[in-house]
């Protein structure tokens, strides 16, 4: 270990410097991203901010979150915001003072809120008895069917939360679909981007499959894998594919329903033996979790791709009206 070679105080000091540098960079990038008048610049800074947040998750020993943040928080959110920038006329982006409120009052309120919240956090930590759910979660890991504790929490101990979360994703994407047709396709990309897409696409799909499989034992899982597939769809769309590689409207409906349908079917299936909803039998837990995650990955990928398109792709019909 390198710790034994270097004086322990030095290691501690280096960690402290790193932590403070990360904190200052985070606050600076956030302030720059929300404070700029040029929205395109703000979005670029927001993507950089997301990547820095992924580094912070890695620093705080949360590799699952680092993967998700890099792929979803910085990647997909950034792509969504950049795509939405095309909907806004370039002149229509004024940054004005708070409507109705004087700015000094708002600043005073912000500082007061920050101090109050900081104080509350310090009090909460100082008064904490150190008892966490962590010990319970880690102690029961061998019964969960997976060995990655975050996957165990997501799809076993608190599977009900994740089930309802997929419901939230579905509701949001239904809202997007209901609000109007998709954006018009961008003009076809040049040969350089096209050959890059040809190289990246198989890599993204293989990475998605890998993240799904490895999620049982190491950082990864359905969300990160779904974001990889969604990234592939975004690339295809940038390459000029109007439907971003998605199947037809009927196929999209099935994909969107799949995550919740498989989750519910497994949950009800295991409860027929007298158990509770989503209480997997011990021997089957690993297989059932992989099954649910595979369906959730496809659903999330489809939902994020549709979100990037910004509405109903060609072929959707609502009532009598054609979608595209």
């Amino acid at each position: 270990m390198i710790d034994s070679l270097i004086d322990k105080d030095w290691v501690e000091a280096l960690w402290l410097i790193l932590d403070f540098a990360l904190a200052v960079l985070l606050l600076g990038l956030a302030a720059a991203a929300v404070g700029t008048r040029d929205l395109r610049r703000g979005i670029a800074l927001f993507i950089a901010f997301g990547l820095l947040v992924a580094l912070v998750w890695a620093r705080l020993r949360a590799p699952d979150l680092a993967l998700a943040e890099a792929a979803i928080g910085a990647g997909v959110s950034g792509a969504l915001l950049l795509a939405a920038l095309r909907d806004v006329p370039p002149s229509g982006l004024p940054s004005v003072g708070a409507r109705g409120l004087p700015l000094w009052l708002l600043n005073l309120g912000s500082v007061t809120l920050a101090v109050l919240l900081g104080w509350a956090l310090l009090l909460a930590l100082a008064g904490s008895d150190g008892i966490r759910l962590a010990d319970l979660a880690l102690a029961n890991l061998e019964h969960s069917g997976v060995s990655n504790p975050v996957t165990a929490v997501l799809l076993n101990y608190r599977a009900y939360d994740t089930f309802l979360e997929l419901g939230v994703v579905l509701a949001a994407v239904l809202g997007v679909l209901a609000l109007g047709p998709a954006r018009r396709s961008v003009r076809p990309a040049g040969p350089v981007l096209n050959s890059l897409i040809r190289l990246l696409l198989p890599l993204l799909i293989v990475t998605g499959g890998y993240l799904l499989w490895i999620g049982a034992t190491a950082p990864g899982g359905a969300f990160q894998a779904g974001a990889m597939l969604a990234a592939a769809a975004v690339l295809l769309r940038l390459g000029g594919d109007a439907t971003a590689g998605l199947p037809g409207a009927v196929g999209q409906r099935w994909l969107l329903a799949l995550g919740i349908a498989v989750f519910a079917a497994v949950g009800l299936g295991v409860s027929t033996g007298g158990g509770a909803f989503l209480a997997y039998p011990h021997d089957w837990a690993g297989v059932l979790i992989l099954l649910i995650e595979a369906a959730a990955m496809l659903m999330i990928a489809c939902a994020l791709a549709l979100a990037y398109l910004g509405g109903r792709p060609a072929g959707w019909t609502i009532g009598d009206r054609e979608g595209g």
Partner: peptide
């Protein structure tokens, strides 16, 4: 080892946040 429970909650939060962002952007459009 860190507590996996808040990690799972935040992972859920990241996905919900991007979904809400997508819906908000569609509304803006």
């Amino acid at each position: 080892a860190p507590d996996p429970v808040p990690h799972a909650l935040v992972l859920t939060g990241i996905v919900v946040a991007v979904s809400a962002t997508a819906l908000a952007l569609a509304l803006v459009r």
